[in-house]
Amino acid sequence: MSSAAFVIIAIFTLAAALAAATLRKLMHAALSFAAALVGLAAFFFLLGAEFVGLALVFIYIGAVAVLIVFTILLTRRDVGEDRGFNWAGVIIALAVFCGLTWSILATQSISIVAPHIRALTVKRIGEALMTGYVWPLQCVGVLLTAALIGALILVMEEKR
């Protein structure tokens, strides 16, 4: 795990995220959001969780980001861009960041280096999903179905 790669990815991710949060044009912000997720996926690769990284790319960039773009297009009569900005939010966010960073730095026991591990293969993940995590897996399946149906019902045209 090289520190050069880490620094590059960190800068890229945080910059993209910041752009997603602050850019005026909605479309730009959505694209930056996708970029930030690419950075996050790179982090996962760096940490050895390749499967999660790929899942993130597929689900977030393939589905969620596209969904956001669609929503922007569907509601574009309202706003192409967003001018309002609430400075109180910035202060709160900064305060939260300072608080979190202070508490992380204050905790000495977590300043550790990653141990060497066996690669986490997809096979092992699959086995874990089908054995110990089979109930959560089924529950998530039900949840996704419910969310799908719920979303469809929400956006259905109201009957005249």
């Binding site: 995220a17 910041l18 949060a21 602050t22 109180a88 939010g89 910035v90 966010a93 939260v96 960041f97």
Partner: peptide
């Protein structure tokens, strides 16, 4: 924090 910022101020 960046996420919070987006959620709070936009």
């Amino acid at each position: 924090s960046i996420g919070l910022l987006a959620a709070l101020s936009r």
